[in-house]
């Protein structure tokens, strides 16, 4: 990046009044920055601090004045969180979500990219078609899939029946603990594949054709060319896909809200736990449905901690590989 180059103009501007010029530059710069910075500080920095404050408080059970009557409880929310089975379950479900969506997302994106990486006339049309769902609303996509997945009458259930599979008929794909999470992930993968596709496509198109030509002369099969040339050379994109897959798992909410509301319930040692009960949804549920602001805040802090850990781990991987 050329950060150094841009300051040159100011430095040449004459020594005698450089201080006033310096001060004036700062003033103009911060004037231009002001609207952005004010919003940033009030609505993006302060909330992170304020959230910690909220995490150390709770709304008293008998109080309707949510913010007037906040009670200081210290680390009680955090302690409760660490003994909350439902919370650890949600972390496990978030992990499960990530484990499903990362490989599926990579496979779908890479497949689409490989299909598009050919000189065909209509390639641009297909590229747009694959990318389109990525810009559309997750809520709508989720609602449409609940129709497709629905029991008895849903088109997918009817399709499976026509080929002799009736296992999903009774409860639908979202109503069974085993298939609920994969179904949510499947809907999301189809929606998001166009994004990874573009990244893979540009990486593949940057690979020098001479590599493939040389491999062909040496008698490499198409599969060998893919695994020995293409895959290693798109590795940075694959790493990136792992990061965004993890982040989308940690942020998963709208798809769960639209399709399953965290359910269906599974019986785990006498406790009913949701098969799609991801942490993002638990935060929402604690806040919006149960009105436990402090608890939800404490949970979101753990979510932040998880995100930071994931980023640090990824950075370590990326740092050693990318340069």
């Amino acid at each position: 990046m050329s950060e150094r180059g841009t300051g040159g103009g100011e430095a040449r501007a004459g020594r005698s009044w450089s201080l006033t010029k310096h001060a004036r530059d700062n003033l103009t710069a911060y004037t231009f920055l002001a609207p952005f910075l004010i919003i940033f500080l009030v609505f993006l920095v302060y909330p992170v601090v304020y959230s910690l404050y909220l995490a150390m408080h709770q709304v008293p059970a008998d109080s309707f004045d949510v913010f007037g009557g906040l009670q200081f409880v210290g680390f009680k929310n955090f302690i409760k969180l660490f003994t909350d089975v439902k919370f650890w379950w949600s972390v496990a479900m978030t992990l499960y979500y990530a484990v499903l969506i990362i490989p599926a997302g990579i496979a779908a994106s890479l497949t689409l990219a490989l299909l598009l990486n050919n000189r065909l006339k209509a390639v641009a049309v297909y590229r747009s078609a694959f990318f389109l769902p990525y810009v559309l609303d997750m809520l709508v996509v989720g609602i449409v899939w609940t129709l497709i997945y629905s029991p008895h009458v849903g088109i997918l259930v009817q399709f499976f029946e026509s080929i002799g599979i009736t296992a999903f008929t009774e409860k639908g794909f979202l109503g069974m603990p085993g298939s609920a999470m994969p179904s949510v992930v499947f809907a999301n993968v189809l929606k998001g594949a166009g994004f990874g596709m573009i990244l893979y496509l540009s990486a593949i198109q940057n690979i020098s054709p001479s590599l493939y030509e040389a491999a062909e002369i040496d008698g490499a099969t198409p599969w060998q060319r893919f695994t020995r040339i293409t895959l290693p050379l798109v590795k940075p994109i694959t790493f990136f896909m792992v990061i965004i897959g993890t982040i989308s798992a940690l942020n998963a909410f709208v798809e769960v809200y639209a399709m399953t509301s965290g359910g269906p319930n599974v019986d785990v040692g006498g406790r009913a736990l949701g098969a799609t009960w991801v942490t993002g949804y638990y935060v929402f549920d604690a806040f919006y449905n149960q009105w436990r602001l402090g608890y939800a805040s404490a949970m979101s802090y753990v979510l932040l901690a998880l995100t930071v850990i994931v980023s640090l781990v990824n950075r370590k991987f990326l740092g050693s590989d990318n340069t």
Binding site: E3, T6, G7, E10, D25, N26, T28, A29, Y30, F32, F40, F43, L44, V45, Y46, P47, V48, Y50, S51, L54, F67, I247, L250, N251, F253, T279, G280, V283, F284, F287, L293, A296, S297, S300, Y301, L303, L304, T307, V308, S311
Partner: peptide, 30 residues
């Protein structure tokens, strides 16, 4: 422009991209 704390500020801004969206829901609502 060159200005006071430019690069640090930019770093801070980029850092904020890492924060999960769910983090903001409760405090922003408050």
């Amino acid at each position: 422009k060159q200005f006071f704390m430019r690069d640090r500020l930019f770093g801070l801004l980029l850092l904020s991209l890492m924060i999960p969206g769910m983090m903001y829901v409760v405090p922003q609502f408050a």
